[in-house]
Amino acid sequence: MAAGGDHGSPDSYRSPLASRYASPEMCFVFSDRYKFRTWRQLWLWLAEAEQTLGLPITDEQIQEMKSNLENIDFKMAAEEEKRLRHDVMAHVHTFGHCCPKAAGIIHLGATSCYVGDNTDLIILRNALDLLLPKLARVISRLADFAKERASLPTLGFTHFQPAQLTTVGKRCCLWIQDLCMDLQNLKRVRDDLRFRGVKGTTGTQASFLQLFEGDDHKVEQLDKMVTEKAGFKRAFIITGQTYTRKVDIEVLSVLASLGASVHKICTDIRLLANLKEMEEPFEKQQIGSSAMPYKRNPMRSERCCSLARHLMTLVMDPLQTASVQWFERTLDDSANRRICLAEAFLTADTILNTLQNISEGLVVYPKVIERRIRQELPFMATENIIMAMVKAGGSRQDCHEKIRVLSQQAASVVKQEGGDNDLIERIQVDAYFSPIHSQLDHLLDPSSFTGRASQQVQRFLEEEVYPLLKPYESVMKVKAELCL
C-alpha cells in the first residue's frame, strides 16, 4: 500500500493539533497551500530580480507567473513527485505547466533550498508574528487579574506546605514575570531571523556568478533584492546548502521555554482548584465526569500541561538535527523538520489560546482563602504575639514557653481530632496574655502579614508589564474561544 493518505478522510490519521486544537490561522501558515504558494512567490521574486539585473526574462513571463501564483494543481504535483521522487522539481514542473512561456526560467540558477529553506524562514517569521500578540493578550488578562487582587491576602506555599502570606495578585505576578520573559525572547528570536537568500547549491553562489558572467556586484544585488522582497532586513552571508540548523534550535528553545512557563502556571491553577481557592472557567453544560456528576475538573489547565510537556520535548529534535548536518548538509534534517517545526508552533498556539481562555474567566473564592488563612495564621502570628507581650512588660522566655504549650495543644486538636485551630481562643482565655487581649485582632490582621506584596504588584505592572504590552494595544480586544 502506498504511503500517505487522504487526510480529510475519517479513515486516515490526522494530527489532533490540526484537527482538534490549533487555530485556523496557525494551521494555514503550515498548510501545503501556504507552503507551495510561497515557493511560487519566491520563484517570481527571483525572476523579477534577475530581470532587473539584466537576464533575458520578459515582462510577459513575469506576468504569467504572477497570474498563476494561486493556480496550484495539487493532484498534478503529487503525481509528479511520485514520478520524480523530488518535491521541488515536482512543483517546478507543475508551475511550468500553467506558465508555459515562463517554464524555462522558473528556478533559474537556484537549488531546492532556495524555495525550501527560504519558505521555512518566512513561515517561522509569520508563525512567530501570530504567537506574539496571543502571548501579549494572556499577559494582559493576567495583569488585569493581578491588579484587581493585588491586596487580597492568601496563604503562600513553599514545598506545598503553608508559608508566609502573600497576595493573590502577587502570586499571579510570578506567572506574568515568566511570560514577559517569554514574550521578550519570542520577539528577540523573531527579529534575529535572517533570510537564507540566493546562495546556490553549497552556499557559494557559483551558479549565479556564472549567470551574471562573473559580476560579483550583481550577485550581491540579486541576494539583497530577493531578501528585501521577502520582507527581511538581512540575509546570511555564510550558508551551506541550507541555512544553519542552529536557527531551528533557537526558535524551538524559546517555544519550549514558553511551554515550561505555561505548565507551571496551569499546575498552580490545578492545585488551587483542589484547594477550592480558584477555578478555571466551567461552562453551564460542561460535564466533569461521566460517573461523578459533582466533579469540576480543571480540564483546560490539564490540557495545557499535557501539550506543554510535548512542546518542551520537541527542542531535542533540532538539537540532534543540527549535530548531524555533515559538511554542507545531509538530508537527516528533512523529514524531522517537516514534523517538529509545525508541531512546535501548533502546540504553542494551542496552549496560548487555551491559557487566554482560562485567564479571561478565572474565578476566585475569597471566603475559602480566608478560612485557610484562619487555619494557619495563628501559628504564624506567634512571633508577633511574643513581641507584643514583651512590649507590655512580659518575659520573652516565659511567653515563648506559654505559646509553645498552647500551640501544641491547638495542633493536637487540628491533627488528632480534625478540629479547627483554636490557638487564639486559648490565648484569649489565658490570664497571662490579658495585657494584649485587646491587640489580638490587630495582630491577626492578614494584611499585616503580606509585606509589600501589593506595592510590588503595582510597581511591576507599571514599570515592566504595561510598557512591554504597549506595541500590542491594537490587538488586545480579541477574545479566545474554545470549541473543545
Rank of each mutant, 00 (worst) to 15 (best):
H400R: 02
V363T: 04
V254F: 05
K402L: 08
C98T: 10
H93E: 12
L377I: 12
N421H: 10
S257Y: 06
S31V: 03
M476T: 15
G197E: 01
I287D: 02
F208V: 06
L272Q: 06
L482I: 15
R137I: 13
I176W: 02
T119I: 07
P318Y: 00
I287V: 05
I403T: 08
L423F: 14
Q177L: 15
E148P: 06
T244C: 12
C172F: 04
S207Y: 03
V92M: 09
F145Q: 06
L179K: 01
D59R: 09
G169A: 03
A335I: 03
F195Q: 02
P10G: 08
L132M: 11
D144T: 14
G5N: 14
C172V: 11
Q51D: 04
Q356A: 15
M26V: 07
Y243D: 00
Q409K: 12
N71P: 11
G394T: 10
H159P: 00
R303N: 04
G54C: 08
S395E: 07
G54N: 11
G259V: 01
E220R: 10
M89P: 00
K470D: 15
K224T: 10
S257P: 05
A3Y: 15
A308T: 12
V189E: 13
V115D: 03
E81G: 00
A392R: 09
L355C: 11
S12D: 11
L468D: 06
G156V: 01
E279G: 06
I287T: 13
I106A: 07
H107D: 01
G104V: 13
Q455W: 06
R404Y: 10
H107L: 04
L222V: 11
D445S: 15
Y432Q: 07
T321R: 02
D117M: 00
K134H: 12
V29I: 11
R245H: 00
D268G: 10
I287Q: 04
A348E: 07
G104C: 12
T202E: 03
E213S: 11
Q241F: 00
V92K: 05
S19R: 14
P378A: 03
C266D: 05
N336H: 02
C340F: 14
R20G: 00
M312K: 04
P471T: 13
L271T: 05
I339M: 10
S434I: 09
L186N: 06
S447H: 14
E250L: 11
T111R: 03
R303Q: 04
Q408T: 14
M380N: 08
L42E: 04
I238F: 02
R171K: 04
A230V: 06
F379K: 03
E250Q: 12
L84W: 13
A235D: 09
S261K: 01
E343V: 04
T201P: 07
T267D: 04
R196L: 13
G418A: 05
E50C: 08
I105N: 12
Y21S: 00
Q205N: 13
V414A: 04
D59M: 08
S12Y: 09
Q375F: 10
V262Y: 02
D117Q: 00
P100F: 07
H263Q: 04
A235I: 09
Q416K: 09
N274Y: 07
R374V: 05
P281R: 11
G203I: 01
E228H: 10
Q375G: 04
R40G: 01
A381Q: 11
F236A: 09
S261H: 00
M89E: 00
L271G: 05
R190Q: 13
M389F: 07
R338A: 03
Q161F: 01
Q455R: 12
R188I: 07
L53N: 07
L222N: 02
C99M: 11
G419Y: 07
A127T: 06
Q205M: 13
K284E: 08
L84S: 06
Y466S: 12
L84E: 14
R452C: 15
S23V: 10
Q241Y: 00
R404A: 09
D120L: 07
E50H: 08
M225E: 11
V315W: 08
T244D: 10
H97R: 09
E401G: 12
E463L: 12
V324T: 10
H7Y: 12
V198P: 10
R37P: 00
A342R: 09
A348I: 12
D6N: 09
P16S: 15
W43L: 07
S395I: 02
H437W: 12
H91C: 09
E383F: 02
K391R: 13
I373D: 00
Y13L: 13
F212Y: 07
L124C: 12
P133Q: 13
D178G: 05
K477A: 11
G197Q: 01
K82H: 10
T227R: 06
V247M: 14
E81W: 00
L186G: 12
P467H: 05
L314I: 13
I72M: 12
V198K: 02
T347H: 07
L46A: 05
A256G: 11
Y432D: 08
E277Y: 05
F345W: 03
A273C: 13
M316I: 11
H107K: 01
T58N: 10
A235S: 09
I424H: 12
W175S: 05
D215T: 11
K101T: 10
A78E: 12
S412Q: 12
A49R: 01
D192G: 11
S257E: 08
F232T: 01
L272S: 13
Q325I: 13
V219D: 00
Q456H: 07
T111K: 00
H217T: 12
L331Y: 07
W39S: 09
E64R: 08
Y13G: 13
Q210W: 00
F30A: 04
S301Q: 04
F212S: 05
V88R: 00
A256F: 02
Q221V: 09
T382E: 03
L275I: 15
D332M: 02
Y472F: 15
R137A: 15
K101L: 15
S253W: 09
G394N: 08
W175G: 07
N353M: 10
A411T: 11
L174Q: 14
A206R: 02
N68D: 11
D441M: 07
L346F: 12
T154E: 06
T242D: 06
L44S: 06
